[in-house]
Computed example of a mutant assay.
Amino acid sequence: MSSDISYTTEEIAKLLKISKLTVYDLIKKGELPSYRVGKQMRVDAADLEAYKQRAKGLQAAEQRPAPAEPVSFQPAAVGAGGTRSVVITGQDISLDILVKHMEKHTPGIRPLRAYVGSLDSLIAMYRGESDIVSTHLLDGDTGEYNLPYIKRILVGFPYLVVNLLSRKAGLYVQKGNPLGLKDWADLSRTGLRLVNREKGSGARVLLDEQLRLHGIQRDQLQGYGEEQTNHIAVAGTVAAGEADVGVGIEKAAAIVGGVDFIPLIEERYDLVVLKSAENMPWIESLMVILRSEEFRRELQSIAGYDLSRTGEILLET
């Protein structure tokens, strides 16, 4: 029976031909009632069908001449039970730990994870589709992480930028580094096979900035168009011998095994939140969590994290 059917956010995105971020935005606004099964959000088929019927009704109304009383659809600001969904974007495991602490210490909210790259996450925040954005975007001209991009994209918005952690980024190479790769300039070598990250990811921006700074043309790199959607997949492609080199973070190399890591840069991994009256209660809770010993202890158990600035406010507008 249809009442027994439910869908994941990925399945709904495919059915409606929209992005997963848009699905999270619909859930966040209360347009799609949802519930959690383990770490996964699900939506019942009946609720999805009800949403589709409302959307069709709205579309039909917009196509008719305007009636005397305007027809409008106002989504609920909060979900069932008075809880407010908070969309957190990014892929690092530290965010999963943060979600767990927010669920424990921040009543009235329901954290939703969206596994989206840094640049796309900031654009989603500009569109009102995300609440906590994690970002690690290098500006090659200044050597600064994140702030130049945030200032350009979130023009006119009041926001807070706070450090989550720092971590090493660099090159994945095959075990034993048979090609003797040492730094970014080595990417100019003829015949080198690359595996890339998707557009909008922090690793993709890091690669593109280093290619620009070192005068290396993208079309020189065999495999530049071969994309993976996370660090582990990039490291795994190199470990399998399907590529000679990829860009990513140290932790993924340790997880995958069979691949060596060449650290080349310390990247700052920051969180961005928009300041508003409705956000301030959970923002205050977020800051308490980031600065708590309980949260720090859990992050310290994971190798490769520098927590010396965790919880530090880097910019507030």
Rank of each mutant, 00 (worst) to 15 (best):
G248A: 11
L119E: 11
S118C: 07
K199W: 10
Q228I: 01
A169M: 03
S130C: 15
A124W: 04
A240P: 03
S94R: 07
E103Y: 01
S19C: 05
L21R: 01
N230W: 11
E312K: 09
A253K: 08
G140R: 08
K104G: 03
I150K: 05
V71C: 04
R296Y: 10
K29D: 13
A80W: 06
R127K: 14
Y126G: 04
P33D: 02
R212S: 13
Y24W: 08
I132A: 08
V162K: 01
E278R: 10
R296S: 13
A240K: 15
Y145I: 07
G30N: 03
F295D: 06
G170E: 04
R36P: 05
V245G: 00
Y159L: 02
I123V: 15
A46D: 13
G257I: 06
D270N: 13
V99D: 01
A66M: 12
V23K: 01
E278F: 08
T190P: 08
A169D: 13
S72G: 05
L21M: 15
E129Y: 11
G241N: 04
A235G: 04
A68I: 12
S3C: 09
P65V: 08
T9E: 03
D219T: 13
L147E: 13
A45S: 15
K56L: 00
L206P: 00
G57W: 00
G311P: 06
T135Y: 02
P70C: 07
K28F: 00
R189S: 10
L299G: 06
N163Y: 00
D92L: 10
L314V: 14
Q300T: 07
K39T: 13
G38Y: 02
P75R: 03
A46P: 01
R212A: 14
V245L: 00
E49M: 10
E250F: 02
A13G: 12
I262Y: 03
L58T: 05
G258D: 11
K100N: 14
N230E: 07
L286W: 10
A66R: 08
I109S: 02
L264R: 03
V195I: 13
Y7D: 02
Y269N: 15
A66S: 10
D131C: 07
G241D: 12
N163C: 13
V288P: 01
L138P: 00
V78K: 14
V234L: 08
L16S: 05
L137V: 09
G215A: 06
L16E: 12
N196F: 00
G81C: 13
Y145K: 06
L16Q: 12
K39H: 12
K29W: 00
A50G: 04
E267V: 09
G38N: 08
N196G: 09
I289Q: 04
K14H: 03
I12P: 00
E129N: 10
T106C: 15
S166C: 09
I313Q: 01
E103H: 06
A254D: 05
N146Q: 04
I27W: 06
Q300C: 08
Q210M: 15
E144F: 11
I123L: 13
R297N: 15
A240H: 05
T229M: 02
